[in-house]
Amino acid sequence: MAEPMPDLPETTLDAPLLPDGLARIATQGTPCPTPVFRQSHLHRLADRWTHLLFLACTLLVVLLIGGILYFLAARGAGAFFPLAGNTDKVVTFREVFLSTNWDPGDGHFGIVPFIAGTLAVTGLALLVAAPTGVLTGVFIAKVAPPWMRNVMRQVMDLLVGIPSVVYGIFGLTIILPMVGHAWLADAPAAGFAVSAAILAVMIVPTVVSLSTDAFESLPSSLDEGSQALGSTRWQAIWRVLIPAARPRLLTATVLGLGRAIGEAMAVQMVIGNNPQWMLLMRQATDQTPVLRFLFTPAATLTTELVQELPNTASGSTWNNVLFAMGLLLYLMTMLLILATRRLGRQEHA
């Protein structure tokens, strides 16, 4: 490689002939010392072949996607088909995907409670996070004064950086006792409500930052035109800006949903981990089913994996069904990513 000679160009280069950017750098010194390039056979050889190295890195990422799919599918399929390394009995798709009875000790592997739990907790979280996230996005992009814009960005940066176990411990030691004392006469408050509230705070930064980008990338003529026609600020936002940004706002929401579906530890710490929650719901006879639903200890796909995977023997049906649940999670997030692609194409059409 050529020796960089940082001090030389200032005196030897003919500044006026240089393109603007390099002249500025040459005269101001750093950011990058202007290199003097020496060409040799070796350089040309390196130039021709190193891009294969970079390509290999990229292909590794592609390979990883396939590899994850392959290994999870191989283990998950062991639950349904007598594959090599499978030491236990097989179950049918019906018994797994259509049954609400999860009792591995007794040979029942219905995972409907976990799918329903995942949908319920992410749905509730999205119900809070999507509207508030989009509105905060509008606020940052169009309404807030510059100092408040800065404050909000920093708040969102910090919220997204807090680890999920710290969210979990906050929920466990501060929110659960508080809610339990306030509304449930000291009953444990574990369940969908508190999990969803924590999840909402966890995914709001994703929704906010993407929807802020969406609003900022709209041409300002939309906003100005609308107000020139006599709309109020809010009318411009509600009837012009939000419809115009709709595909990207939906993308923001879908990516938030993806984060919520995959979150494991924070939810596991506050949801109560009860695989039989649907049975409990059915037996409950009190007058407030909604409240009962919100505060019944439950379980989701991710929490069940965290809870039970370490206790199961490799190769058993129980273990294989858990891997099938992991595969299901992976496929769900892949589907969501493809959905955002769809939305992106809609925007260009």
Partner: peptide, 13 residues
């Protein structure tokens, strides 16, 4: 896709 893959799925892998 890899960025959106839940960490628990990476853990299983």
């Amino acid at each position: 896709t890899l960025a959106a893959t839940p960490s628990i799925v990476l853990a299983l892998f």
